[in-house]
Design a binder for these strands. Structure first.
Lengths: 255, 255
DNA sequence: AACCCCGGTCGACAATGTCGAACACTGTTG
DNA sequence: CAACAGTGTTCGACATTGTCGACCGGGGTT
């Protein structure tokens, strides 16, 4: 495979940098972070500004992401087949379970939320479509890792952040959990990300049976789990049924 | 101002092309649309694919927007000051008025929705944060045009699409409407976009008094307007109050 | 089997982007 | 009050870099 177009790769790196370091960055900081000459960085940023991908704060002179990206991002949602097929099944799942439903896919080793249905009868929730969740501490993420050995290895190379006492951080614990998920066909997460919260998720398969995403619900641990501390079987069934339905819509043969 | 970085400008054009022609495009179509040699287009697209901005459908070989854009888009929302300052005031406005509230800004001569609060007690609504609205047929858009002569001229150069019989399409009608909006300090739209729907909007000013966005509500015409067909004064006051509050938060001196 | 369209590859050429020094400006510091 | 340390920005010479068009291999269709 021939090489990349250097300037475009650099432009993308600048955009990612601006996205990660939430807030505004000066041209000097950008150049330093990416190890580029200031002049070069400036040229790239200027064209990104011309096309609306970054904006410049007039008073401070610093740069931030631009409005054009918002439209591109939502345009992605329009063509994303995983999302469009999921919508029909996510709403019923939320209604039946009474919990918030999210659909995610793997992006760069993390979980990208492509759809989100609020918990019924609860208003104050923030939409987190487009946000990235940690793969090792969410039910969605663990499902996705279970069926993507490459990503799973990458996560275990790094140091998984311990959000709570129950977060799986060692490679041993993660490997065992993922293997169990593969056997069961679904994953649970109980207070591994936030105390008092739990989640259940199952894999969504696309054409050819490949896992292309995951669907899951999350809520207070005392509603997700039964008295013995295990996920309620009825909820698990709901989630798995929804996952199978979406998979069927996506053209997965018989899952 | 020195020139742009050619390849980046081209890459941006490809992304916009993919966003507009909703669906997948082949490399040939891309090259033809932008008048580029196939080889060149391929190199750019390949790089965009490597950074996750476009994805390729394995079976058809066609390209579409990639997942990384979704995250960049929402990252933009996180740093967007207009949006973050608006949120505190959009919810109360929706609650007081009982209607859906939207906040928009001008992008490329169209209205980009940066925040959206659903109408209270109504569930089935689709979130249109990130979507583009026509400037000449929405209350938000007319407000923004009224305070941006450049964009207003551009819109009038083109041929404004007539959505309904009441849509303003001639330069004369638009110019008069915008002038009136400037005098009043707010705008209304009654069945100019969709029959049976109406909206009210007011300008949001940033530091220095410049108009940086607009806030408005929309709903069924019989709830927005009173018996005589004019927008209800109480609703207009609500909207203007909210716009002033946001402007104050943004640092506009006395508006 | 001949054809046409597709996406992908390759290598030569020069247009293109890169680079580092210099500029104008601001706010701070001695 | 001047020197300084920052900032974002400009410029022009150089050669790296991306562009370009012909060519390859494969699927469909005719």
């Amino acid at each position: 495979m021939p090489g990349q177009v250097q300037s475009i790769a650099r432009a993308a790196a600048i955009l990612r940098l601006l996205a990660s370091s939430s807030g505004r960055l000066g041209i000097g900081e950008i150049a330093r972070s990416l190890d580029l000459p200031k002049g070069t960085a400036h040229g790239i940023v200027r064209t990104l500004q011309d096309v609306g991908f970054v904006e410049q704060d007039k008073t401070s002179g610093k740069y931030q992401l631009g409005a054009a990206l918002l439209h591109l991002g939502t345009s992605y949602l329009d063509v994303n087949e995983l999302r469009s097929r999921s919508i029909n099944w996510a709403d019923p799942l939320a209604a039946r379970s009474g919990e918030a439903v999210r659909i995610g896919t793997l992006l760069d080793g993390k979980v990208l939320v492509v759809h989100h249905v609020f918990r019924p009868d609860d208003t104050l929730q923030t939409l987190d479509v487009g946000s990235l969740l940690p793969p090792h501490a969410t039910a969605l993420g663990k499902v996705l890792l279970a069926y993507d050995v490459g990503a799973a290895n990458t996560v275990m190379q790094g140091e998984p952040e311990p959000y709570t006492r129950r977060t799986l951080v060692t490679a041993r614990a993660l490997t065992r959990a993922l293997s169990e998920i593969r056997d069961n066909g679904w994953a649970a997460e109980i207070e591994e990300m936030t105390p008092g919260k739990a989640g259940i998720a199952a894999p969504i398969r696309g054409y050819g049976g490949l896992v292309v995403g995951a669907i899951g619900l999350s809520g207070p641990v005392d509603r997700i789990c039964d008295g013995s501390g295990a996920p309620r079987p009825t909820l698990v069934t709901y989630v798995r049924d929804a996952a199978r339905a979406v998979s069927r819509d996506l053209g997965a043969a018989r899952w």
